[in-house]
Design a protein around this nucleic acid. Structure first.
Length: 559
RNA sequence: GCGAGUGUAGUGUAGUGGUUAUCACCGGGCGUUGCCAACGCCUGAACCCGGGUUCGAGUCCCGGCGCCCGCACCA
């Protein structure tokens, strides 16, 4: 949900966007060729920031211990997305008004003429459209063009020419994790619950990308599919969040400020694992530098839920574009595994052992294969099924009704079947809880919340107060002057810092020292290291804090 | 997709059909300065793309593309 912005926040947004472009955080892609809507580059600073956010995200979930990372192709065969429902559900049937060209969804136009137009095929919609001739909402006339289907997935061909196979660029990373379920199940020693995470690109050919990074055609997604036994008792421990009042907009009770435990106990959150992931999502967002007062969770209305979901909460973040959904935590039930199982005939199930094995006494009849086989030939299989359903006191010969005819089974065709089976468990389709993160939207809000315009000596001054865990550069090293050997020391310090694993330092000697501090502040470097005259005498340097401007002197060896 | 607005150096801008396209910040070099966008000199860098009107187009017209807003669409 996006709200219109006020005009001075619009001006701030323009200054922020300009700075992000100038400093190489995010910029329009392919700009020298005119650019393309909905496609952005992460520049030299943005690229590293994104990588750090991704890394923190992975560690956040894999630290649960039963979560593993996988990576699946973005190119996806047609059948996969047909099975998942995306070919059907990601398509909209569009028609345009002959007189004013207004484009409308055919099913929306036909709502008053059919109880559920969403369920109709393209041909059925076409004939209903012609028969009922709804008014154009824009101009009031009622002549419509032929319905065309608009799919929001990028289609492609896998392989060359006529031998190529239809495919799409994936609209979400999730499907690969469902289709890999058998391998994941084995990897986790066939024990639920477990999860798979994946970070990667997703593609949606949006009709109208808007608002910079908020709606993209190619975007960075980070999703976890967490597979659970729907009948296993939950024993999630929410005590670490017992002091945290979260803002929730629930479907039934409106806006609440409530702890996770209360929301789960009272049934506002319909599943405990959804609640757990909401709390963990909150932690993640705060850890990467999102302002905690600008996070809320909104429950989907039953009628806005995606085709696969049974309960869904969005984490929304407030920023320059209003409240924007950045994470969706959906209970997908068994929808996905069931769909792929139905489509492929493969088993995508987990086994649940009973606490006590169950004895099942079978006392009935089955066929004597060597006699009934030749007697009933191709119908023998049907006869067998029918005979096995007969009660144990059946008298033969007896008549059995098959699909189209009646056959007589006599005693030579059958034999008694008596045994006791011990059933120790059963196979079931796991349920899935999926936290799905829009990394680009989160990064946008990290930048938006970190961006601060302050007054410094009557001038406006920009600081990115980024969380040190996501900053693109950890240290800036400045020689106060490039003479008397200061630059050699500075270069050495820069090399020492850069050689540490995961640490990025830049060396900057151009401009006055104040200008260099200002540049460092603008990309959010937390610590500036300055080499001055005293460094020449005693191997000490000054460390200057980004947020306070405070300096302290330390030995180079202690860095 | 429809409609409105808009597009000039890296950024923000000035530019009423007629000089070498304005200014500031910015970037680079040199000098200078004992630490918070200092100063001096030198220097770099732009009219979104394609048609048209015109002697002449950054300026007017048409189309495309991008950005932004509204509607529609969308998780």
């Amino acid at each position: 949900m996006v709200r219109p912005m006020e005009s001075d926040s619009g001006a701030r947004l323009e200054r922020l966007s300009g700075m992000l472009k100038r400093r190489g955080f995010i910029l329009p892609a392919f700009e020298i060729h005119g650019g393309s809507k909905g496609l952005y580059d992460f520049g030299p600073n943005g690229g590293r920031l994104r990588n750090r956010v991704n890394q923190l995200w992975l560690e956040h979930w894999t630290s649960m211990g039963n979560v593993t990372e996988i990576s699946c192709p973005t190119i996806t065969p047609y059948e996969v997305l047909e099975a998942s429902g995306h070919v059907g559900e990601f398509s909209d049937y569009m028609t345009s008004c002959i007189s004013c060209d207004e484009v409308s969804r055919a099913d929306t136009l036909l709502e008053e003429f059919h109880p559920n137009p969403d369920s109709l095929s393209k041909l059925e919609l076409q004939s209903l459209l012609e028969k009922s001739a709804p008014q154009c909402p824009a101009c009031g006339t009622n002549k419509w063009s032929t319905i065309i289907s608009q799919n929001l997935m990028f289609s492609t061909r896998i392989g060359a020419g006529n031998s190529g196979r239809e495919g799409f660029l994936r609209p979400e990373t999730a499907q690969g994790m469902f289709t890999s379920f058998p391998a994941l199940y084995r990897h986790f020693r066939e024990k639920l619950p477990f999860g798979a995470v994946q970070i990667g690109k997703g593609y949606r050919n949006e009709i109208s990308p808007r608002q910079g990074m908020i709606r993209l055609r190619e975007f960075n997604m980070a999703e976890m599919e967490y597979f659970i036994d729907p009948e296993a008792p939950l024993n999630h421990d929410y005590t670490q969040w017992s002091g945290l009042q979260m803002v929730m907009l629930s479907e039934d009770k409106g806006e609440l400020s409530i702890t996770i435990a209360e929301a789960v106990d009272s049934g506002i959150i319909r599943h405990g694992t959804v609640g757990l992931f909401m709390a963990k999502t909150y932690d993640f967002l705060v850890n990467v530098g999102i302002d905690k007062s600008r996070i809320r969770f909104r429950q989907h209305e039953t009628n806005e839920m995606a085709h696969y979901a049974t309960d869904c909460w969005d984490a929304e973040i407030h920023g320059s574009y209003g409240w924007v959904e950045c994470v969706g935590i959906a209970h997908r039930g068994c929808y996905d595994l069931q769909s792929h199982e139905n489509y492929t005939g493969k088993t995508l199930r987990a086994r649940r052992e009973f606490p006590e094995p169950k004895e099942v006494i079978i006392d009935g009849w089955t066929i004597e294969g060597s006699v009934a086989g030749p007697a009933f030939r191709s119908q023998a299989g049907q006869v067998k099924d029918a005979v096995e359903k007969l009660p144990s006191d059946t008298q033969f010969p007896c008549e059995i009704i098959l699909d189209k005819e009646v056959v007589v089974v006599d005693s030579s065709h059958v034999k008694r079947l008596q045994r006791t089976d011990l059933i120790t468990g059963e196979w079931f389709i796991p349920h899935v809880v999926e936290p799905a993160f829009g990394i680009d939207r989160i990064i946008w809000h990290i930048l938006d919340h970190a961006y601060q315009e302050i007054e410094k000596q009557d001038e406006s001054y920009t600081v990115m107060r980024l969380n040190p865990d996501v900053v693109p550069v950890d240290y800036a090293v400045f020689p106060l002057f490039e003479k008397n050997g200061m630059q050699e020391i500075a270069q050495k310090v820069s090399n020492i810092l850069n050689s540490k694993r995961g640490v990025v330092a830049i060396y900057d000697s151009s401009g006055s020292i104040g200008r260099r501090y200002a540049r460092a502040d603008e990309i959010g470097i937390p610590i500036c290291v300055t080499i001055d005259h005293q460094s020449l005498d005693d191997d000490s340097v000054t460390l200057r804090q980004r947020d306070t401007g405070e300096q302290k002197r330390v030995q180079i060896l202690d860095l």
